[in-house]
């Protein structure tokens, strides 16, 4: 059973439940954060949104919630944990993933379809993904940053899962929508079972939405 946790201010929760439940026919439950018990689930997804109105800093208040203690336990047990957009911000704020997400370099909210290249083989979530996927992004604080030593570790451990690329598959300045360090769009923990990504796979799950590449990322969740 997959849990999608809803915090006050989550707003992509229903989309995620739709993609996993209605499209992929997985058993999925939308759970209010106060009622979340990790032991009842095999997988947990932190959906996008503006938890607690982004007060103080995106994701930081949710990061200190009791629900996230449960999520941390699940991660230790090796269960898959996926954070999308604000969910990624929560994962970096808890320290479950390294680095942080800063304000976009253009200082504006960016909402558009982008192309991702799979760069990391370690992540459980990238197993079914071909080399490239097209999915939308929609965020104001998505510029991934980490210090030099941290970046080296990510590279050495094969933890960088997705990078922003152009149509030809090249990591360029133009294809980087938010100024992320090294065009990073998504990373995982060294074990590969915890992944955070800024793009929204759940918004690319049906042709009517403009594409369904996102399913290739969500497909591994059972």
């Amino acid at each position: 059973m997959i849990a999608v946790i809803r915090f006050p201010g989550s707003n992509c929760d229903m989309d995620m439940v739709h993609a996993l439940g209605d499209v992929l026919k997985r058993k999925v439950k939308l759970v209010w954060h106060r009622e979340f018990k990790g032991g009842e689930f095999d997988v947990v997804v932190l959906p996008g949104g503006f938890t607690y109105g982004d007060h103080l800093r995106a994701g930081i208040i949710a990061a200190f919630s009791p629900a996230m203690k449960e999520v941390r336990e699940m991660a230790k047990e090796g269960k898959p944990v996926l954070g999308v957009c604000n969910g990624f911000q929560i994962l970096t704020e808890t320290g479950m993933l390294p680095g942080s997400l800063l304000r976009n370099d253009g200082l504006n909210f960016v909402c558009k379809w982008i192309r991702l290249k799979k760069t990391g083989g370690r992540s459980l979530f990238a197993r079914k993904v071909e080399d490239f996927v097209s999915v939308p992004i929609a965020h104001n604080e998505g510029r991934y940053f980490i210090d030099e030593k941290g970046l080296r570790e990510l590279e050495q451990n094969d933890q960088i899962v997705f990078k922003y690329v152009d149509a030809g598959g090249n990591e360029t300045y133009e294809s980087n929508p938010n100024g992320s360090l090294s065009n990073i769009a998504g990373i995982c923990n060294p074990e590969g079972n915890v992944m955070g990504m800024m793009p929204h796979p759940e918004r690319a799950c049906e042709e009517i939405l403009g594409g369904k590449d996102g399913l290739k990322i969500l497909e591994v969740l059972k």
Partner: peptide
């Protein structure tokens, strides 16, 4: 003005 959490609470 950010009322996003109220919005979510109205729609549980």
């Amino acid at each position: 003005w950010r009322q996003s959490s109220t919005n979510t609470n109205c729609h549980t």
